[in-house]
Nucleic acid binder design. Structure first.
Lengths: 349, 349
DNA sequence: AACGCCGTTCGAAACGTTTCGCACAGAACG
DNA sequence: CGTTCTGTGCGAAACGTTTCGAACGGCGTT
């Protein structure tokens, strides 16, 4: 491996001059600089990041903590990772993928204690999160994709649940629906501290209220089976509901099933909006579902940029960015029939 | 940050003794060792990876090159990444997520020239791949998820297309199908050098031949629209086909659509097997699709392990592991009707 | 009593950078 | 003509490890 010394030798200058010339940290005569650059190019010189990091304390390496797969780790979460890595690469940083062990705080202590990682990007942040406590206390720069209950001065990018819910509700209200329901994640599969679940639930309720719509919240389902049963229960208690928003794509499968079992159809007898699934997933359903596509890539990008900004200008004010989901209209949302005529043979589609 | 020197001071020994004690590289008297370990614990000492790597040339950092998203980057590919990172973590290694730029070879040159990365894990390997050429030539240890046309002595883990195709064909033949078709990826969306596409195509053809089944290959589709048209064309040319295997989940959407448009049903008039999609995706379809679920996580794990093995015992023989997809039987494959009775009202399901 | 050996510990060099005080030349100035 | 800048380059120290030859008692052997 060719080192700074080799370059210095070939260009007939001191090592420190090469460093200065290559990094532009000090003025170097044009002619000397040229000679040095040529020598470096000829030797194919690449600076050693380890040596550089050792003295400068800057490694340009970020860590992305990702939760154990299985816990709702889907396409969206993966987009965080890839987009964040890409944004980082564009800015000259590297992204370390760090699977979260049983003890995430210990994991963090280890990661940051090594001197390898300059900053941490957190995802799947819960409303109260021990990881943020640790990072705050230890002074390690970090940013979040998602946010705690009170993010304070911590940089973060998250879904704009308020706007997303209002857009979805406006879409349904605009179609003429007067009563809707929201199928949240079940508390057994997701922590009650899971931000998206809590916030979406709250915002859908608020949006429905503001729009003057009937609203059935507190429905929860994460599997097809749960979805099916939850829908039957919902119809028993709230037959006036003509449209539902569903967080879990699996639960949506169940709802569709239940609708079919009644001899009903979507969107004729029920409008269904998928909350928080990519269009790619939504179009696999028949009919193609209307969905609220989460801005996974953008959040990843934003998170990485924020973290890097924080590293490069520590004094800057904290960044908080909320991005709404994109409403992608499919074939599963339409004007409601009168609930009385439900299940009647379909009119022309 | 607490350094080796701090520990040495507190334990009243030389720095080198602390190093020896903590790493076990040299014998240290039990009592001394105890004192050192206590001092280290009290100070919360963590070795600095940069300094260690600088001298020992061992950073325990691996790079995972991942292709630009969009190019068929789905859940499976993500599983490679997370599983590889996890397997690496278990063995004390770190995984650097490195997005592939326009010039992957330059990217590699940069990555490995830095002294940061010890080995590289390649995914989305094409039949001939410039990246493997470079790595081979430059002597950087690496492993592949997937494989080139002739992997030679390079460690790799890949799908066992031969077994997978035979299992799928056996499943269909067992149900009584006599003629099948294979819907491959389109060559416009995927490089003709894309291994999975080429291998799956070849192996399905071979498996059908061995089983004495009629076979229509060379059907290609990657979107719903292409899928629909391809199916219509197939039925015009090969009405005897009663079962299809489809690589792309989007194309499957189109096939399902085309079937419905004819007034046919799945699996009554056509059996459909999804090739290379997770069960999670397959169960979103109505009916739930039979699928060949690729062993994403296992391949990621295997890839990481191979790479680490290579690093830790360079002399060992190259590892080649082929893992078949798991056949997950859904509701989309069933015995065929006689082609003559196709489209007749469904008998009891 | 002298010798060699073993178990244990030490000290210094090395890894490849960055950083910073200092030296040296020539120019500008009084 | 001496002094003070300014532009340019040098050398040494430092970052936190690992590595390795050497030192130093104590012990058994001859």
């Amino acid at each position: 491996m060719t080192s700074l010394r080799d370059v210095a030798e070939r260009a007939q200058v001191a090592v420190s001059t090469v460093s200065a010339a290559l990094n532009g940290t000090r003025p170097v005569k044009a002619e000397t600089k040229r000679r040095i650059e040529q020598a470096a190019a000829e030797l194919g010189y690449r600076p050693n990041l380890l040596a550089r990091g050792l003295v400068s304390k800057r490694t340009r390496i970020l860590a992305l903590l990702f939760p154990p797969p299985g816990s709702g780790f889907g396409l969206t979460e993966m987009q965080f990772a890839t987009a964040a890595a890409e944004a980082a690469a564009e800015l000259g940083y590297h992204m370390l993928l760090s699977p979260e062990s049983a003890d995430p705080v210990e994991e963090l202590r280890y990661l940051t204690g090594m001197g390898l990682v300059e900053g941490v990007l957190l995802m799947e942040v819960r409303l109260t999160d021990e990881r943020t406590d640790f990072l705050l206390e230890s002074g390690v720069p970090f940013a979040m994709i998602g946010r705690t209950r009170d993010p304070g001065a911590v940089d973060h990018a998250d879904i704009d649940f308020a706007r997303t819910a209002r857009e979805a509700v406006a879409h349904l209200a605009g179609l003429g629906h007067r009563a809707i329901a929201f199928f949240n994640h079940s508390t057994s599969a997701y922590s009650p501290e899971y931000g998206p679940s809590v916030r979406a639930g709250a915002e859908f309720a608020a949006a429905a209220r503001e729009a003057g719509l009937g609203y059935a919240g507190d429905v929860r389902a994460d599997t097809a089976d749960e979805g099916r049963r939850a829908f039957d229960r919902l119809m028993a208690e709230h037959p006036e509901v003509t449209a539902v928003a569903v967080m879990s794509d699996r639960a949506a499968v169940g709802v569709l099933q239940a609708v079919e079992e009644r001899g009903w159809s979507v969107p004729g007898d029920l409008s269904l909006v998928l909350a928080s699934a990519s269009a790619r997933v939504a179009e696999m359903f028949r009919p193609r579902l209307t969905t609220l596509e989460p801005p996974g890539a953008e959040l990843g990008r934003l998170g990485a940029r924020m973290l890097i900004d924080r590293l490069e200008s520590p004094g800057s004010p904290p960044a908080h960015r909320l991005v709404p989901c994109r409403l992608v209209i499919g074939d599963s949302s339409a004007p409601p029939r009168t609930t009385a005529s439900r299940g009647a043979p379909q009119t022309e589609a």
